[in-house]
Structures are given as structure tokens and as C-alpha cells.
Design a binder for these strands. Sequence first.
DNA 1: CTAGGGTTAG
Length: 610
Amino acid sequence: MPISHVLRQLQVCIKHQTPSTAEKLHSIIIKLGLNQCGPLPNTLVDVYGKCGLFHHARQLFEEMPHRDHISWASILTAFNKASLPNLTLSFFPAMFTVDQLQPDHFVFATLIKACAALGSTMLGKQVHARFVLSPFSDDDVVKSSLVYMYAKCGLPDNARAVFNSIKLKNTVSWTAMLSGYARSGRKNEAMEMFKSAPVRNLFVWTALISGLVQSGNGIDAFYMFISMRREGVDIVDPLVLSSIVGACANLAVLELGKQIHGFLIVLGYESCLFISNALVDMYAKCSDIIAAKDIFGRMKTKDVVSWTSIIVGAAQHGQAEEALMLYDDMVTAGVKPNEVTFIGLIYACSHVGLVCKGRKLFKTMTADYGIRPSLQHYTCLLDLLGRSGHLDEAENLIKEMPYKPDEPTWAALLSACKHHGNTQMAIRFADHLVSLKIEDPSTYILLSNAYAKAAMWEQVSEVRKLMVEMEVKKEPGYSCIDIGKESQLFYAGETSHPLKNEMLGLLKELDEEMRRRGYVPNTSYVLHDMEQQEKEKQLFWHSERLAVAYGLLKSVPGTVIRIVKNLRVCGDCHTVLKLVSSIVKREIIVRDANRYHHFKDGKCSCNDFW
DNA sequence: CTAGGGTTAG
């Protein structure tokens, strides 16, 4: 068998992703005594890497008597392909320390790709500097990968500078730049790049649409997706569809999500791993956790993302025990959890007060899986300790941890103090909070209540002043409800809705029944200076109540009422919705800015912590 | 024989 034939066969393995054929060919090569001939050693490393047999690639590489630039480019590409960008960067120095070789343009491209995967601007800039000083500094392909790296790191202006220096701009460099603008939320520049793109293929469309989804412009993404369909672009691979499913998840639009799901089935992509994962997440985020579990259960292969999606979904819907059981199944199935999985798990423990289990998971993460806890992990653990009343332990942990606490961290602790009536500690945390730039309106409420409780009126008025300044920038609160294919949006305050009188009547009726059951409006959630009665009226017109009233009037009796809210549900509305669920005997699911609330029989899945 | 663009979980 001539060498050229073997080489051709090996390329087929890459194309068809058939690692077993690659192994067979490898054994034939050894039998023929060709394993050190011409390009074959390098090709084998390359083929094993690209077929996903990264350990084989590495072993061959280590055993090579003569390694050249191609061997190095091949093994580093294999590391990248195996999602091991850290290994790419830590392994690379051996290129000159062991083999006395300097990186060429191929190697530079792999290093930059690894930096992009890590999202590390610092490392990326170091590699960039070495590239500029190298003999290959004119190479346009490496420049394209630099554009991609800066774009991915959220530095579109740096990306643009490199882009401008590319002599022959092709679709690849164009797409990288376009994607950079889109994912940084620079819509106008992204559209500009899109309109003037040299060709308008599926890659270009995908870069634009997925960038828009990532920057939170899901609605624009949808309009572009519709344009893409109108232009008759052939959807020959499903990547753009996973972005569109992601947009449905972010926007929490269940009906649209179902339509896209149907479309995926028609195109035959439903069982593709990426797509199934996106669907599981979409249904969970659209508050249909049952559909999410159904898709998850029918998946033939499940990876970390699949397991993590369903664990996080269950945890966010208040099904903590289930989330922990799923984790056991995951370990049994031999899938290694990652840092995101542990966020979901500790969050789950937090919701049912499993303090020991949560602490244990936090330790397991580092001890068994080598994951360095992030600030988010610490915030979850602090939340768990705080909620369960271990406030002193939480305060100690905050001093020990290697991060500076941010707004969510302090807010979680402050909320815990409120629940456990520890005013003194609350003031200590509140004092830390006021020195930060607060983004979340509900944090102001927490702060103001903490100071009010300690009768620190000067601080209370200070917080109110800060809040008035922020009010200008704050988007107004709204709640959205879907009835059939129609969607209704309600803002807080009196409405001019055609069904206004019916809604008002129903809310009044419910209010009377609630008061009979002992409901007293909690006006500490209203931060304006006004009379008690006026404050109660404010609460009465909160958007989620309008949406519920509308839902009760218009939906099919007995069905679940689903509401999506852009801000967090206020404490008073939370009480009201619990009562309403038991009065009208309906399940009400509210997705607010932070979590999911399943109101049923007078109780909420969030266990009254939020 | 080796490099560059689009994808999912917080």
C-alpha cells in the first residue's frame, strides 16, 4: 500500500470522525514499518487529535524521535480540540526548552485560540506581543485569530485595530470582526459589517445572530433570523438554531420556543447534542420544567452541559432534592461535573437548608475535581450559611475568602440578617454595600429596611436619595403573560386596558378574601414618602397582580398561569400570590429577574427566600 | 502532513 493512499485514508477518518478506523490504519502502518516515514508521524498525531483521541495523539507525540514545527502545531491543535486551552499554554514552552524550536505562524494561531477559549486578555496580549516581534508578524491568518480573540474577550476596539491591519480581508476575518461587534452589543457597527460582508453565508448570519443573543438583544436576533429564512439560506448545520433556542430561553417566551422546537424536529436536528442541551435549558427557563425533564430523559448521550442544565433548572425551580439526586446519577454515569454544576448544587442545598451537604460539596469541588472556587461559588456558600442562620460562620468566611465581595454577595448576607433578625450584623454589611455602586433596585430596598430597623434615619434618607438618582436610569417594571398565542404586557400603575374594570373588580374581591385570611399589606417595599393608604394603593397596582388578574379572567380554567417579570417580585406581591394560588386553586409560576416561583396551595417553591 | 470565522450550562 503506497504512502499516499494511507494518507488519503487518514484524511477520511477526520472527515467522518471515525477514530476506530484511524486506529486500524495506524496498526497497518506499524506492520508495514512505515511509522517513521515522511509525514506519517505528524499526520497520525493530527488525525488522532482531530478524531477526539487526544491521549493517543499525546502518546505518539511524546514518543517521537524528531519533532518539528508541524508536530508542535498538531499537538497544540489537539489540546485545543479537547477543550484544554490551559494545557496548550502550559505545554508550549517545551517547544524551545526541550526541542529548541521557535513558534511559527501555525503555532501562534493555536496559542491565540487557547487564549480566546480562556477569555484571558492578559495572556492574549502577551502572545500578541510575541507575534508582533516574530518574523511572521505579517501573517493575515494569525491576525484573524487575534481579531477573534479580542472579540471574544469583549475588546472590540482592539479587534478592530488588528482587523484594519489585515491586508487581504476575507470572510474569515470579516466574520470574526462582525461577531466581535455583535457580542459586545455594538449593534450599529455589527450591522455595518454585516451589510458590507464579502459573502453572506451561513457563517456570517450565525455570527450576527449569536452575537446579538449573547449581548442580550434576543429580539433583534429573532428579526435577523426571520430575514435569514426569507433570504432562503440553507441551514446546513444547527449552530445558528442553538443560538435562537438560547434567545427563547433568555426572553422566556415559551410559545415561540415550542415553535422553534417544532422547526428543529422538521430539520432533523432535535437529537443533536448541542441542540438538545439548548432545549433543556430553554424549557427550564421558560418555566416548563416538566418539558425540560422530558427532553433530558430522552437524550441518548448526555454531557456535562446536559446534566448541568437540568440540575440548575431543577434547583432554580425549587426542586432541590431532585437536583441532588441528578448529581448522583451524573457521577454514576461517569460524567465529570464542572464549576457550573457546583453552582447549581450549592444553590440547591441553600434552598432546602442542607448546610452540611453544601459545605461538603464545596470541599469536594476542589479536593476531588480540582476546581478553584470562584466568587460566585463563595456567594452561593455564604447564602447557604446565611439562610440557615450560621451568620457568624458566614462573616468569618467573608474575611477568609480570596475575593472582594460584590453586590450580590453582600445582598445575600443582608437578606439573611433580615430573616434572622440580626440588626447589628445587618448594619455592618449595609455599610459595606453603600460604598459600592448598586445596580439592583431590590438591594436598595434591603438596605433601606436594614437602616430603618436600626432607626438610622439619616442613612435611610441617604439610600432614598441614591435611589432617586438611579430611578432615572432604571427600566420600568413590567409583567408579561401569554394566553394562547397572544401576549399581554402590564406596567405597574393603573392601566387603560379594555378589561380594566373586570380586572379591578377581581383584584378587589381577592383583596377582601385575603384580608379575611389575615393579609396585611407590607408597605416596607414601597420606598416613597407617602401615606399608608397611598402606599397600599401602589402595591395594589403592581404589574404582576394585573397580569395574574388578566390570566384568571382569560385563561382556560385549571391551567397553569405563567408570568414573566423583568424585575424581582416584591415581598408583598409574593405573599399575595401565595394567597391567591390557594384562593383560586390555580398554580401560578412567576419568572422574575432572579429566580422562579411556583405558587401552589398557598406555598411557594422558593421557600420564601429570594 | 500543521494555523483563522459560527454552538450549549452560571
